[in-house]
Nucleic acid binder design. Structure first.
Length: 419
DNA sequence: TCTGGGGTCCTAGGACCC
DNA sequence: TCTGGGGTCCTAGGACCC
C-alpha cells in the first residue's frame, strides 16, 4: 500500500503559518517577476481567480476583495517542505519525495492505515503548521486519485483509504472523476481519450489493454492498470540522479545590452555550478540560450541556443563560465529586445564516476577555487563572492519581487517578532 | 506596461554498425 | 529495372508533472 501526502495550497499555507490573520482569507502566490498566479487558496478560487492568470489581468478583483498577494519565496517554501517531509518520515517506514509539496509513503506491512493517515495530517499540522490531505491505495496512481477525492469531498476529513471502499463505492469513486483528473493524463491525452468515448477514470480503468496499447503510448495502459489496483510504478525511496540542470529567468524589463545579458548568464552559471557541486555531480555539456519576448508582435523575435561538449566531466565555475561566455558571444545578436536567458547542463554523472582529464592540471586548481567560493558564499550569503561580470551597470534583468515575505525560518535577521 | 521555472519519460526517425 | 536484414545509439519533439 502507498500513501500520497500533499500540502493544501502549499505556498499559500507556508505564508499563513507566519500570518495567521490570513486564515480563511483569499491568498495568492505569484510566479517569478510577479507575473502569474501560481498558487491560490480556496477562498481565492471562489472569487473566480485561476492558476496561470497574469496578475495585471485581475488587478481589479485583487483590489476589490483585498486578496493577499505574495511574490514566491522559495527560501521559505524549501525549508518548510524539508520540515514537512521530516515530520511525515517520523511516522512511516520510508518516503519518496515527489515534489516540493508532496511525497509518497511506503505503508507495506502496516495496519489501521486510515487512522495512520489522520495521524500524519495532525502531526504535520501541529509540528509544521501546514494543512495536508492523504490518499491511500495499492498503487501510486490510485493513491494520487484518492488524495484528489479527499481534497474535494469535505466529509472525508482529508483522508481517503481505497481499502475502506466497497466494490460499488470504488466504481462510484472512479466515475466521479474525469480522465483528465488522473495523474499522467494531461489535456492532450484527455481530449483524445474523450473522443474515443473514454471520459471518466472508470472508463479508462475498464478499457482493454490491447486497445490502449494500439492508440497510445505505454504510459496510458500502465495508468489504466494502476487504476485497477495493480502497482506498476515503483516506489523510489532515494532521489535518483538528475539528468539535467537548468537555471534561467525572465527579465523584469527588456534587455538589449550584451553586458546585462552576460551578468544574467554569470549568475546562472554560478548557481548551476554550485548546485552541481553540492550534489557531487559533474557535467560534460553546457548550453546557453537567450530569448526575445514572445508576447510582443511589434519587435523582432529571436531565440538563440548553442552548446559545447567539454570532452571531459567538469564541475568548476571558471571552466563552465569560460564556455558559457564563449557561447553567449556567439549567439548574441545586437538590437534584439531579450526577455529571458539561461544555462543548461547536460550529460551529468556522479563526480566519483567521472573519467579524469589527464592533461587538465589547471582544472584541479579551479576545482579548489570553486569549493572555497562555495564555503564563503554559504557562510556570508549568496553573492558574497562573485564574478565581476555579474555586476553590470544595467539592472533591468533582475527579478521583480515586490510582495516577498521575510525568510522567517532561514535568516536570523528575518525571525518573527512576537509581542 | 505587466505573461514562471525546472524537471521526467516516450517515440519516431536518422546515423551508424556488421 | 533491379537495391538486405537486424541491430544499437542518439536526438528532437511532444507529452506529462508540480
Amino acid at each position: 500500500m502507498f500513501a500520497l501526502i500533499d500540502g493544501n495550497s502549499f505556498y499559500a499555507s507556508c505564508e499563513r503559518v507566519f500570518r495567521p490573520e490570513l486564515e480563511q482569507r483569499p491568498v495568492v502566490i505569484l510566479s517569478n517577476n510577479d507575473g502569474c498566479i501560481v498558487t491560490l487558496t480556496k477562498e481565492a478560487k471562489a472569487l473566480g481567480l485561476k492558476r496561470g492568470t497574469p496578475l495585471f489581468q485581475v488587478k481589479d478583483v485583487i483590489d476589490k476583495y483585498q486578496v493577499a498577494v505574495f511574490s514566491s519565496n522559495y527560501e521559505l517554501y524549501g525549508d518548510m517542505s524539508a520540515r514537512m517531509m521530516a515530520t511525515i518520515a517520523s511516522l512511516v517506514p520510508s518516503i519518496e519525495t515527489y515534489s516540493i509539496d508532496e511525497c509518497f509513503a511506503d505503508l507495506a506491512g502496516l495496519d489501521h492505515l486510515t487512522v495512520l493517515g489522520q495521524s500524519i495530517r495532525e502531526r504535520v499540522r501541529m509540528w509544521v503548521g501546514i494543512p495536508t490531505c492523504v490518499g491511500i491505495a495499492p498503487s501510486k496512481t490510485l493513491a494520487k486519485y484518492c488524495n484528489h477525492l479527499a481534497k474535494k469531498i469535505p466529509p472525508l476529513h482529508g483522508v481517503l483509504n481505497w481499502d475502506d471502499l466497497s466494490e460499488p463505492r470504488r466504481r462510484k469513486a472512479l466515475m466521479f472523476g474525469a480522465v483528465g483528473d488522473i495523474w499522467g493524463i494531461g489535456p492532450r491525452l484527455a481530449k483524445r481519450l474523450s473522443q474515443l468515448g473514454i471520459v471518466s477514470a472508470w472508463d479508462l480503468s475498464q478499457t482493454p489493454k490491447a486497445f490502449l496499447r494500439e492508440y497510445f503510448p505505454v504510459t496510458v495502459s500502465q495508468t489504466a492498470a494502476e487504476l485497477r489496483g495493480e502497482a506498476v510504478l515503483d516506489f523510489v525511496p532515494v532521489a535518483e540522479r538528475r539528468q539535467r540542470l537548468v537555471r534561467s529567468r525572465s527579465f523584469s524589463a527588456d534587455v538589449k545590452d550584451f553586458d546585462a545579458l552576460a551578468a544574467a548568464i554569470t549568475c546562472h552559471v554560478e548557481e548551476a555550478a554550485r548546485v552541481l557541486r553540492q550534489e557531487r555531480l559533474a557535467a560534460r555539456r553546457i548550453g546557453v540560450f537567450v530569448l526575445s519576448n514572445r508576447f510582443r508582435d511589434n519587435t523582432e523575435q529571436y531565440s538563440g541556443f548553442d552548446e559545447r561538449d567539454f570532452g571531459v566531466y567538469v564541475s568548476d565555475t571558471p571552466g563552465l563560465m569560460h564556455e558559457a561566455m564563449a557561447i553567449l558571444r556567439q549567439i548574441y545578436r545586437p538590437g534584439i529586445a531579450y526577455k529571458k536567458a539561461g544555462v543548461l547542463l547536460q550529460d551529468i554523472i556522479d563526480k566519483r564516476d567521472a573519467q579524469w582529464d589527464l592533461f587538465a592540471f589547471e582544472r584541479e586548481g579551479n576545482d579548489r577555487l570553486s569549493r572555497v567560493m562555495d564555503t564563503i558564499n554559504a557562510r556570508y550569503g549568496k553573492g558574497a563572492l562573485s564574478y565581476a561580470t555579474a555586476f553590470s551597470q544595467a539592472t533591468d534583468w533582475k527579478m521583480k519581487r515586490q510582495y516577498k515575505s521575510p525568510s522567517y525560518t532561514t535568516r536570523f535577521s528575518d525571525l518573527l517578532r512576537v509581542g
